[in-house]
Every structure is written in structure tokens, then in C-alpha cells.
Write a protein that binds this DNA or RNA. Structure first.
Length: 243
DNA sequence: ACCTATGTTGATAC
DNA sequence: GGTATCAACATAGG
């Protein structure tokens, strides 16, 4: 999502919106077709922000446009519409260019004035004390706690596996029983993981990620990785190094 | 054909 | 209230 934000920041700001493709009522829910268009036509994108996996674009006095990529969404600027039907939402600019949300699975969202009140602080920015307070509590598995967007915004399945592996912490540990020293270690690993992911282009660039597959081994010690469902998501970890 | 998987998240049930 | 489960989407692969 930070990649998408930077793309918009560098290539789409200060361009005037001439038309809006908002006919997909699933991706644009709860808006009716034409509603986003009516609100944004004639506006210019002024600034773009991100909190965790959510992004919003301010439109110089108009309503903010919230964008979410779901699992398969990507932001494209000035690209031709895909031959298929994967462009679920788009802004057409006065200069002839275009900003598109291309999303095969349609789990992404485009919405006016997005509600961000259920999100915790950004996972890459949170301080030590608040991280301890928010993550180190409850009876849920540590990984589930990490991925709870109300606790911490921005950690998805891959990032969680990668950060826990780097920190040497078992995903099934009870969150409330993790020590402060371990939480500090986890926060540092998570920060590093997020920065690396942003720099390299995504959470899939992590070191553990390529090995999250049947027969995969820990890239550090060679032990066969274990797999289970944790927090509803497929989870891989090294039984030798993560405790 | 049927079942599984997926860089997510919301509504719902216990 | 916190936690777990299922459903929403579309596609690919065994």
C-alpha cells in the first residue's frame, strides 16, 4: 500500500478529475453508481495519506477518496484499461490520463470519506510502550493479535509470518504472556520488516516468504518449516528458532 | 468435478 | 468485550 501511495503522490497529484468510473457497486459500496463521480468531478487530488493498509486522497476541499487494495489490488497511473474487466474503479483526468484500481478479486474498495476509526496506530510508526500495551495482552495467539487491524494497522499474513520469524517468536504464543523484552524484539523486527518491504516493493520480498511452501525449510537453520492455521490464515514457522 | 489455496476484512455467533 | 468462524470476491491448481 505504501508503494501505491507513493505512486499517487509522485504521479497523480494536482491533476483535475474529469470523469469517474464508479459503476462497480461492490467495490464502491455503499455508494450508488455516479455518486463518487458527482462528488469528485472537477476536483484536484491534493495530498495522499496512508494508515496501515488503508489509503485516502484529499481533493482540495471536496470529500476524501478512500482506497483499499484488498488482496490483489494495484494502483495504476496512465495505463490503458485492461482488456478484461479488472479495473474496478478509475479517475479520468482532464489531461487525458487515468488513475485505476485494478483488482482481479474485487476485495479492494473505493469509497468517499473512509471511516478509519477502527484502526490502531500504524505498525511501522508505533512506539515501544504503546506496542507493549496493545500487542502484549489477551488470550489470542500472538500472530492473530499482530494481524488485528484495531490493535495495529498494517500487518497482514505475510508480514506477520516474516516478523515473527525474524524475532524468533512462535505464532501460537498467547499474546498476553509474551514478555516485554520479547515484545520489544518483535517491534524492532516488525519495523525492519516493514521498511524492507517498502523499499523492496512488497511483503512478498521477505526472506522467509519463498519458503512458505510444502517442503520448505528455514532459510536460517534449515529445519523443516511447520504449518498451521492461526488467526484464520495459513501460518508457517521454524519450530527450532521460533519459541 | 471437487477441493484447496490466496499480500483482506466484515458480520455473526459463542 | 474478546475471540473464532464464515462469507464475500475471482482465479489457479491438484
Amino acid at each position: 500500500m505504501e508503494r501505491a501511495r507513493l505512486t499517487i503522490e509522485s504521479r497523480a497529484l494536482h491533476r483535475r478529475i474529469a470523469e469517474v468510473e464508479d459503476a462497480d457497486t461492490w467495490v464502491c459500496r455503499p455508494h450508488a453508481p455516479g455518486e463518487i463521480g458527482a462528488a469528485l468531478r472537477g476536483r484536484e487530488l491534493s495530498t495522499v495519506h496512508r494508515l496501515g493498509k488503508s489509503m485516502w486522497v484529499e481533493t482540495g476541499g471536496g470529500p476524501a477518496l478512500g482506497l483499499h487494495l484488498g488482496m490483489t489490488g494495484v494502483i495504476l497511473i496512465d495505463e490503458e484499461p485492461h482488456p478484461g474487466v479488472w479495473d474496478r474503479f478509475a479517475l479520468g483526468f482532464e489531461d487525458g490520463g487515468r488513475l485505476a484500481l485494478r483488482d482481479r478479486r474485487r476485495l479492494g474498495r473505493a469509497v468517499l470519506e473512509p471511516d478509519l476509526s477502527n484502526l490502531g496506530p500504524d505498525a511501522g510508526e508505533i512506539g515501544r510502550e504503546e506496542f507493549r500495551r496493545r500487542v502484549g495482552r489477551g488470550s489470542a495467539p500472538l500472530k492473530a493479535r499482530l494481524m488485528d487491524q484495531g490493535v495495529l494497522a498494517g500487518v497482514g499474513n505475510l508480514l506477520a509470518d516474516e516478523a515473527l520469524w525474524r524475532a524468533g517468536l512462535h505464532p501460537l504464543r498467547v499474546a498476553g504472556e509474551v514478555s516485554d523484552a520479547e515484545l520489544d524484539r518483535l517491534r524492532r523486527a516488525l519495523r525492519r520488516t516493514i521498511r524492507d518491504a517498502i523499499r523492496k516493493g512488497g511483503a512478498h520480498t521477505g526472506r522467509l516468504i519463498p519458503h512458505r511452501t510444502p517442503g520448505g525449510a528455514c532459510p536460517s537453520c534449515g529445519t523443516a518449516l511447520e504449518r498451521a492455521t492461526v488467526g484464520g490464515r495459513t501460518t508457517w514457522w521454524c519450530p527450532a528458532e521460533q519459541r
